[in-house]
Nucleic acid binder design. Structure first.
Lengths: 224, 224
DNA sequence: TCAATAGGTAATTTCAAAAATATATGATGA
DNA sequence: TCATCATATATTTTTGAAATTACCTATTGA
């Protein structure tokens, strides 16, 4: 019997990932009131099931709940954006140093592969094709995740993932596309990682993150 | 009308804090199977309400849920313990540096006050009175939290709190009491913070955390 | 004796409706 | 006109039970 993966997946789980994705990719905008009945109709689930996953997103900091007045999508602000970026910097730089120290050849292979996929898509983007934003962002995540995957701490990777997704939401909201700057930084990151130059790699990463924040804040996409 | 705080508090919220506390303080031991019906009777709540807060604890990493086979309290291991301690070290050292840089006189006041309460209780503990472990641990948290309270990032404080509680769980499980070593380190931490010596403060903090981990692992309290 | 399967039991997951709470509407009195 | 209070509506919170899935036991056949 072919035990197809996901056959055991609960519908609450599927709806959870769906709503989570809708928040991160801005289809549920910041501050949006999340009325249970409306969501129940929209996502075709019962209210009790919805409340379960809403409570998850609450702990993740993607939605807020005030007393008995229901849920809404976490609002955005320039301050929060900077805090999240600083958190990513702290976590990812630390993980990157560890990963560069502990990574083996198989790690290098994963990094090279992930960068190849990302670079290919970035070329398309530079050519003007903006149709695959979600795939691009997934490849971006896969590359950064591959880089830190040998840090040796599941706790660190989990915390980083949570922060990264919030970072991603701000990027999407601000519709960030910094020309070929990001693509060049990705190449530099790859080069430094393969040379096992942790100082250079973290320096590029810090610039990568800070420039992105400065770019979006200057563009005024976030009403502080 | 006296709007007493907590009057608006939902029963799901109360039960959440109760179960969370029961996990952290070991009254619900690691690996414990959490049968819905049993919990429903024990905590006097409906199953749906329970599932809401169980989903929260799931995201927090205090319980695990495997497929459709229900929930159980997150197991412990020496590896996880070291990862959590390393995370606390990373987050708290960074926050401490920032807080020492930005903290004002009011911050100093909070730190001194928190240390006074903690030191008083530690004196009782050294005298042999082990009855107030929970209060002691709360004061310990309040002191460390006061130290980093001026780091300027809510995101950092939130992430730190989550990790600190998991760290606390391991301390409780291992029944840690390192004589007066911890109390002395708290005094050194206070002194370095007031002198605004970030290097000295983080050095003490790192020792504080690492010694605690080494002590408990050597004692064999955790079956790896 | 062992593996495989079928049936029954126990658990989780999902739902729809009742209870509790908050918000909006309109009437009353100063 | 404005604030206050009572009423009605809308929304959230909680519940108890139905539907689904996993687990255990025993029977069958080799």
């Amino acid at each position: 019997m072919l035990d197809q993966p996901g056959s055991t997946e609960t519908i609450g789980e599927k709806t959870y990932r769906r709503i989570r994705s809708d928040i991160i990719f801005g289809r549920l905008p910041p501050g949006q009131k999340l009325r249970l009945e409306r969501l129940s109709a929209q996502y075709e689930t019962s209210i009790a099931t919805l409340r379960e996953l809403l409570n998850r997103l609450l702990v993740e900091g993607l939605i807020v709940a005030e007393g008995q007045r229901g849920f809404e999508v976490m609002p955005v602000s320039a301050e929060r954006w900077q805090e999240i970026a600083a958190m990513r910097e702290l976590l990812e730089c630390h993980a990157l140093r560890q990963s560069i120290e502990y990574g083996d050849v198989e790690w290098e292979g994963r990094v090279v592969a992930a960068h190849h996929k990302l670079a290919t898509l970035e070329k398309q983007l530079l050519a003007g094709d903006r149709s695959q934003t979600e795939t691009w962002k997934r490849y971006d995540w896969e590359f950064h995740h591959a880089l830190i995957s040998c840090c040796g701490s599941k706790a660190l990777l989990d915390t980083h993932s949570a922060i990264f997704d919030k970072y991603l939401r701000y990027q999407i909201i601000a519709v960030v596309f910094r020309g070929d700057a990001a693509a060049r930084e990705h190449r530099e990151l790859l080069k430094a990682a393969l040379k096992r130059d942790a100082d250079a790699a973290t320096a590029v990463l810090v610039k990568h993150i800070r420039d992105c924040v400065q770019y979006t804040i200057k563009s005024g996409a976030l009403a502080s």
